[in-house]
Amino acid sequence: ATNIVGKVKWYNSTKNFGFIEQDNGGKDVFVHKSAVDAAGLHSLEEGQDVIFDLEEKQGKAYAVNLRIK
């Protein structure tokens, strides 16, 4: 899925991951530091509006192509 809109539920910059809540009511999506770095960001803030693509690997969904809304 592409261009999914959501809000950062939480992001832990020490542990380098967090979760994004989808605006469409879907399951929360894992986001890793690598996606944050690829977006040219240092971190994510709770409540921040983002747009992302959804990829699945080994049955787990995660956010890629992250951008600030």
Rank of each mutant, 00 (worst) to 15 (best):
Leu41Asp: 03
Leu54Ser: 06
Asn12Pro: 02
Phe17Ala: 02
Phe52Lys: 00
Glu56Met: 08
Val31Glu: 00
Val29Tyr: 07
Gly59Val: 06
Lys27Cys: 04
Asn24Phe: 12
Val64Thr: 12
Ala39Glu: 03
Ser34Gln: 12
Val5Met: 15
Gln58Tyr: 15
Tyr11Leu: 03
Asn3Tyr: 11
Glu46Leu: 09
Lys33His: 10
Tyr11Pro: 01
Glu55Thr: 12
Phe30Ile: 04
Lys60Val: 11
Val50Asp: 00
Ile51Tyr: 13
Ala63His: 00
Ile68Arg: 10
Ile4Gly: 05
Asp49Leu: 10
Gly40Tyr: 09
Asp28Ser: 06
Asn24Met: 07
Val64Pro: 00
Asp49Trp: 11
His32Lys: 03
Asp28His: 15
Ser34Phe: 11
Ser34Asp: 08
Leu44Asp: 01
Lys60Gln: 11
Lys33Tyr: 10
Lys15Trp: 14
Arg67Thr: 13
Asn16Gly: 15
Lys60His: 13
Leu44His: 01
Gly59Asp: 12
Lys15Asn: 14
Asp49Ser: 08
His42Asp: 14
Lys57Leu: 08
Ser43Cys: 05
Ile51Ser: 07
Ala35Tyr: 06
Lys15Glu: 05
Lys9Pro: 00
Trp10Ile: 04
Asn24Ser: 07
Ser34Asn: 07
Lys33Ala: 13
Ile4Met: 08
Gly25Gln: 15
Trp10Pro: 00
Phe52Asp: 00
Asp23Trp: 08
Gly18Lys: 00
Asn65Arg: 12
Gly25Met: 12
Ser13Asn: 15
Lys27Val: 10
Asp49Val: 14
Ile20Cys: 02
Asn16Tyr: 14
Ala61Gln: 07
Ala63Arg: 00
Val5Ser: 07
Ala1Val: 13
Ala1Ile: 14
Asn12Leu: 07
Glu21His: 15
Glu45Arg: 08
Ala39Ser: 07
Ala39Arg: 03
Ser13Val: 09
Val8Cys: 03
Val64Lys: 13
Ala63Tyr: 00
Leu66Arg: 00
Ala61Tyr: 09
Asn24Glu: 06
Thr2Lys: 10
Trp10Leu: 05
Tyr11Val: 03
Val31Ala: 03
Ala39Thr: 08
Ser13Leu: 09
Val36Lys: 04
Ser43Leu: 11
Gly47Leu: 05
Ala1Phe: 14
Ile4Glu: 15
Phe19Asp: 00
His32Thr: 04
Ser43Glu: 11
Thr14Met: 09
Asp37Trp: 13
Ala61Asp: 12
Gly26Asn: 14
Gly26Pro: 08
Gly40Thr: 04
Val36Gly: 02
Asp49Gly: 12
Leu54Thr: 09
Leu44Thr: 01
Leu66His: 00
Asn3Leu: 05
Leu44Glu: 01
Glu21Trp: 14
Gln48His: 06
Gly6Arg: 01
Gly6Ser: 02
Phe30Asn: 01
Gln58Pro: 08
Tyr62Phe: 13
Asn24Cys: 05
Thr2Cys: 04
Glu21Thr: 15
Val64Phe: 12
Val29Leu: 04
Phe30Arg: 02
Gly40Leu: 06
Glu46Gln: 14
Lys60Phe: 10
Phe30Asp: 01
Lys7Ala: 12
Ala39Tyr: 03
Val5Pro: 09
Ser34Tyr: 13
Lys27Leu: 13
Phe17Val: 03
Glu21Phe: 07
Ser43Met: 14
Glu21Gly: 15
Leu41Gln: 09
Lys69Ser: 04
Gly6Asp: 00
Val36Leu: 11
Asp23Thr: 11
Ala35Asn: 05
Lys9Ser: 05
Lys7Met: 06
Asn16Thr: 12
Gly47His: 15
Gly59Tyr: 08
Gly26Phe: 07
Ile4Trp: 06
Asn65Glu: 09
Lys57Trp: 12
Glu55Trp: 13
His42Tyr: 10
Ala39Ile: 07
Asn12Glu: 09
Lys27Gly: 09
Ile68Val: 15
Asp53Cys: 03
Tyr11Ala: 01
His42Asn: 13
Ala61Val: 14
Ile20Gln: 00
Lys57Ile: 15
Leu41Ala: 07
Gly18Met: 02
Gln22Thr: 14
Gly18Phe: 03
Gly59Asn: 15
Asp37Cys: 06
Arg67Asp: 05
Ser13Ile: 10
Val8Phe: 03
Ala61Phe: 15
Ser13Asp: 10
Glu45Trp: 11
Thr2Ala: 10
Thr2Gln: 10
Lys33Pro: 02
Glu56Phe: 12
Asp49His: 11
Tyr62Cys: 04
Ala1Glu: 14
Tyr11Asn: 01
Lys69Leu: 08
Gln22Val: 07
Lys15Ala: 13
Gly25Pro: 09
Glu45Phe: 14
Ile4Ser: 10
Glu45Thr: 11
Phe52Ile: 04
Gln48Ser: 09
Val64Met: 08
Arg67Phe: 15
Lys15Ser: 12
Leu54Trp: 06
Ala63Gln: 00
Asn24Asp: 07
Gln48Ala: 07
Ser34Gly: 11
Lys15Gly: 05
Gly40Lys: 12
Phe17Pro: 00
Asn65Gly: 06
Asp28Asn: 07
Leu44Pro: 03
Ser43Ala: 08
Gly40Cys: 05
Glu46Val: 11
Val64His: 07
Phe19Met: 06
Lys57Thr: 11
Ser13Trp: 12
Ser13Gly: 09
Asn65Tyr: 08
His32Gly: 13
Phe17Ile: 05
Leu41Lys: 10
Ala61Cys: 04
Gly6Lys: 01
Gly47Asn: 15
Leu66Asn: 00
Ile4Cys: 04
Gly47Glu: 06
Gly47Ser: 13
Glu56Trp: 08
Glu46Cys: 05
Leu54Gly: 02
Lys57Ser: 08
Thr14Ala: 10
Leu54Cys: 04
Gln48Asn: 06
Thr2Met: 09
Leu54Gln: 09
Lys69Glu: 13
Thr2Asn: 15
Phe17Lys: 02
Phe19Trp: 14
Asn16Ser: 11
Tyr62Val: 06
Lys33Arg: 13
Phe19Glu: 02
Lys7Asn: 05
Tyr11Asp: 00
His32Ser: 07
Val29Ala: 07
Gly47Asp: 09
Ala38Gly: 11
Val36Asn: 02
Lys15Gln: 13
Ser34Met: 10
Gly40Asn: 12
Gly47Trp: 05
Glu55Gly: 10
Gln22Phe: 12
Leu54Phe: 09
Glu56Ile: 08
Gln22Arg: 09
Ala1Gly: 11
Tyr62Trp: 15
Lys33Gln: 13
Lys69Arg: 08
Thr14Leu: 12
Gln58Met: 11
Leu44Lys: 01
Val50Ile: 10
Ala35Leu: 03
Ile4Lys: 09
Ala1Lys: 12
Ala1Pro: 14
Lys33Gly: 08
Gly59Glu: 07
Ile68Thr: 09
Phe19Arg: 02
Lys27Ile: 14
Asn24Trp: 15
Val29Met: 04
Thr2Leu: 14
Val29Cys: 04
Phe19Ser: 02
Leu44Arg: 01
Gly6Ile: 01
Gly59Pro: 04
Leu54Pro: 01
Tyr62Pro: 01
Thr2Ile: 14
Ser43Tyr: 12
Asn3Trp: 04
Ala39Pro: 02
Glu56Pro: 05
Ser43Thr: 12
Asp23Gln: 13
Asn65Asp: 05
Ala61Met: 12
Lys9Ile: 07
Lys57His: 10
Val5Cys: 04
Ala38Phe: 08
Ala39Cys: 03
Lys27Asn: 07
Leu41Pro: 03
Gly25Trp: 12
Asp49Asn: 12
Arg67Tyr: 12
Asn65Ile: 02
Val29Arg: 06
Val50Tyr: 04
Val36Arg: 02
Phe19Leu: 05
Ile51Leu: 13
